[in-house]
Design a binder for these strands. Structure first.
Length: 111
DNA sequence: TAAGTGACCTATA
DNA sequence: CTATAGGCCACTT
């Protein structure tokens, strides 16, 4: 077993999996309508080890949370969701220029 | 053990 | 704007 896999296994064994999963969904659920956040911000706020985990969690269990309010760091949605996501955001008053949302204006942060 | 694959990020050219 | 490059973590082959 590699060093990396060792660290990962150790972290998982500390019941991190479910708690993290839950924290990530809580953070996403706390994003108010009309605002958006990024995978990186969510990861930081929820204490996730990396933004990839956030995307992974949403992929497997994103139906109960406002997943459409989560964008990539450059303000664009994940490629396979673009149209659906931007349309949902539009109904909340979040407008996009092309495929990009202006994060300076719509980004939400805990502060 | 190694390599591939994501709802990712930052830096650089 | 696009394209690489390197880093990241969990999971699958």
């Amino acid at each position: 077993m590699s060093r990396r896999q060792n660290r990962a296994a150790a972290r998982r064994d500390v019941r991190m999996d479910e708690e993290l999963h839950e924290r990530v969904r809580d953070v996403i659920a706390s994003i108010p309508p009309g605002k958006v956040s990024t995978y990186g911000d969510i990861a930081a706020a929820a204490g996730a080890p990396s933004p990839r985990l956030v995307g992974r969690i949403l992929a497997e269990d994103g139906q109960d949370v406002p997943w459409h309010r989560v964008l990539r760091a450059n303000g664009t949605p994940a490629p396979h969701l673009v149209h659906r996501q931007l349309e949902l955001l539009r109904t909340e008053g979040v407008l996009a220029e092309g495929q990009r949302v202006d994060l300076r204006r719509y980004r939400w942060q805990a502060q």
